[in-house]
Design a protein around this nucleic acid. Structure first.
Lengths: 256, 256
DNA sequence: AAAAGGCGTTGATCTGTGTCAATCGCGGCC
DNA sequence: GGCCGCGATTGACACAGATCAACGCCTTTT
C-alpha cells in the first residue's frame, strides 16, 4: 500500500550519494557481501539500464562483454536448437546475477519478462574489481555453487520426473522465490506465460494446462487469476514434487 | 610410449618433494593455476585417498566436510527420488573437482566407476586457503562457470532432445573429454554401463541400446567392444547432436 | 459495442519411449 | 574347455505426453 520510492531503487550514479545505498535488491544479491568502500567502487563501474518486456539483455552467440545484476523485474534465460525447440534454463528475479555461465560468448539468450532494471558491468572491469575485492569473489563463488546445485536439481526434474511432479516442483520453487520478495508463502505470482513454463519444464503448453486443471480439480491449488495461484495444500504439493507415491487415489486398496 | 612413473602421480606427502610435482592430473585441474608456493600449501592440506569401483566418495544427505580433486579414474554423480528413480548429473574424470555444488550437506552421491584416486581436502581448511590464494579462488570460479554452462547444455538435452540426439551428444562429449586424456579423437572409451548412460540421458537401457544399434546399422559408429566405440562419421553425429534434420535417409527426396 | 487477436483450455488421436519379457553373448570361474 | 551369470540386445505391447484441432475468455482496438 505505502507508496515507497521503490522506483528509485536502481543504482543511479547521483554524485555524493552511494547509488547502491537505496537499492532494494542489494540484500538479495552479491553486492550484499560488500562493505562501504567496496560498494562504492562497484557502484562506480555500474551502468544502470532498463529493459522493456521482450527486450533482450544478451543474445546467444554474442561476444560476452557484460555482466548483469537484476535489480527489478524478471527475466527468461534460454537456449535454442536450430529447428526452434527452446529450453528455458532459468528465470531470474531481483538480486540474481546474469553472466556466470559465460565464456567468450554467451551460450544463452536472456530476455525481460516484465519491465526490468539491471546494474550492468563491463566484464573486464568487473574482473579487475574481483581481483581487488576477495569478498565479492567469494560471494560470486557461493552464488555459482548454489546455481550449480539448482541446475542439478533441474536435471533430476527434466530427466526423471513426470509432468505433474515437474509442475509441482516449479510451483513450490517459484513460491519460495516470491516469498523471499513479498512474504506470501502460499501465494505464487507468475510473470511468465504457460508456453514459457512448458519450455522450462520440458513439456508443452497443453500438458501444463492439463496438469494445472487437475491440481485445481483435486483442490491442491486455486487459480486467483491466470498469473496468480493460491497453494491450498502445500504438503500434498510437496509430496508430488519429490515424487512420493501420493495417497493412491485417496482411499485405494492398501495391499493385496 | 615412454613408461613414465604415472603410477606415482597421486599426491603422496613424501618429505621434501612437492607431492603435486609429479601429479599427472595437475595440468587438468584447478591446481594448475598455482605457483610453487601455493602448490606446496595446497599439498600440505591434501589427503591422498583411493576408492574401489562402486565405493562412494560422498553420499547424498551427508554433512559436507570434504572436497575432492579427481586424479585418476572416473566417477558417477547422481541424485535419487524416493522411489528409486536415478538421475546421473555428471561423470567426473581426472582433473575434475567434486564439491562445488555443495551447501552444508551433499545434494548428490558420488561413486567410483573404476579404481579412483583423489586429493581430499577438509572443507574448512580449503576455504581458509582460498582466502589466501586468490588465484585458486579465481580458477575455481572459472571452473564453476564452465560447469554451469555444461549443466545448462544438459538441461537443453534433457528437456528438448530426442533419444538419438541425446546419445549423439553424449558420445561427442565423452570423445572430447577422452581426447583430452589420450589424444584419440574418434575413439571413445566408456567407463560406465548402458544403465548409467541411460540414467545420465534421461532414458532407459533399452532405448540406449536401440539407438546404439541404429547408429551401428547406419554406419555412423562401430562397436569395437561393449565399452569402446569408433566414430566413423563425426560430421553426421555432430548434426544429430545439435538436432539438425539429418539428410533424410541418405538420398531421400529433396523436395515435394 | 463490435471486431480481432492472443493466450489458455479442452478434446481426440498419434507416437516416441517406457515396460515387460525373452534371448544373446561376453567374461569370469571352476 | 565348458558352465554360469550379469549386462546388453531385441521384440511385443502399453502409455504418458505430444500433436492436431476446436473453442473460450479476456484484452485491445477502433
Amino acid at each position: 500500500m505505502s507508496l515507497t520510492d521503490s522506483h528509485h531503487l536502481a543504482c543511479v550514479n547521483v554524485d555524493g550519494i552511494s547509488p547502491c545505498a537505496t537499492c532494494g535488491a542489494r540484500a538479495l544479491s552479491v553486492c550484499g557481501s560488500l562493505a562501504e568502500d567496496g560498494l562504492r567502487r562497484l557502484a562506480a563501474l555500474a551502468d544502470d539500464v532498463a529493459f522493456n518486456p521482450g527486450e533482450a539483455l544478451v543474445r546467444e552467440g554474442d561476444t560476452a562483454h557484460h555482466l548483469f545484476n537484476i535489480t527489478a523485474g524478471s527475466v527468461r534465460v534460454y537456449k535454442l536448437l536450430p529447428d526452434g525447440r527452446r529450453q528455458i534454463v532459468g528465470f531470474l528475479y531481483a538480486g540474481d546475477f546474469l553472466g556466470l555461465a559465460t565464456g567468450d560468448h554467451y551460450a544463452f539468450t536472456a530476455e525481460a519478462l516484465e519491465p526490468v532494471k539491471v546494474c550492468k558491468f563491463r566484464k573486464v572491469e568487473y574482473r579487475r574489481l574481483l581481483h581487488d575485492l576477495p569478498d565479492l569473489e567469494s560471494a560470486l563463488l557461493e552464488r555459482a555453487s548454489h546455481e550449480l546445485a539448482a541446475a542439478q536439481e533441474q536435471m533430476l526434474l527434466l530427466g526423471r520426473k513426470t509432468a505433474q511432479e515437474r509442475f509441482a516442483s516449479f510451483l513450490l520453487d517459484t513460491a519460495r522465490r516470491c516469498a523471499r520478495a513479498d512474504g506470501e508463502a502460499d501465494r505464487v505470482h507468475l510473470t511468465m506465460t504457460r508456453a514459457e513454463i512448458a519450455d522450462y519444464l520440458g513439456l508443452t503448453t497443453e500438458t501444463v494446462s492439463r496438469v494445472t486443471s487437475r491440481l485445481k480439480t483435486t483442490g491442491v491449488i486455486r487459480l486467483l487469476s491466470l498469473s496468480d495461484i493460491a497453494i491450498l495444500r502445500p504438503a500434498v504439493l510437496q509430496d508430488m514434487a519429490q515424487g512420493n507415491p501420493g495417497q493412491a487415489r485417496s482411499g485405494g486398496s492398501t495391499a493385496g
